[in-house]
Amino acid sequence: MNQAIQFPLAELHTQCEMVRALLYKTADLMDKRGASSQAEQIAMLNLWANRLCCDALDRAIQVHGGMGYSREYPFEHLYRHHRRYRITEAPKRSRRGASPASCFGTMGAAREGTHERTARRVKIIEIVGLGPVPFGSMLLADMGAT
């Protein structure tokens, strides 16, 4: 097989395995400690499973050539279907677990006060309505740019 086809597929397969490992672990912990105890992991999972799904379908369309785009194959339908989850799921809840506020605000260092200022500013950004902020803009906020 051509390596231009092979490498991306191998990467996507690896990512599938990674997401699956987190999925099984989270499902196991949900069984053991209750369904609502793993909200953060579920948020991470939702974000990455949907992203991976769209990436894999995009690659499948590419590998299949023009036929992947047609309705002969299921890929374009599935892509449209699962692209929606990145619109409806992501902004509301699924990024909360993967957001810096969750990483820094709920972890030990922030609670002990070392990163209190950063955590507070991230919280303010979230309240103002910019939503979950990427790491880059969080650093800018900490330097006083916003």
């Binding site: 097989m1 051509n2 086809i5 092979q6 597929l9 996507l12 397969h13 990512q15 599938c16 997401v19 699956r20 999925l23 989270t26 499902a27 949900m30 209750g34 369904a35 609502s36 793993q38 909200a39 579920i42 948020a43 999972l45 939702n46 499973a49 949907n50 991976l52 799904c53 990436d55 894999a56 379908l57 690659r59 499948a60 590998v63 299949h64 194959y73 890929f75 599935l78 699962h82 989850y85 799921e89 809840r93 699924s94």
Partner: peptide, 30 residues
Amino acid sequence: LRFINENRIRQAAASLGVAQMSVNASVQYA
């Protein structure tokens, strides 16, 4: 919250299944 979490992990699992299916189909086709 329990139902929300259960539905959301179910949705993540569905997405993962589709991702794996499309990778397998691509490999088979190629």
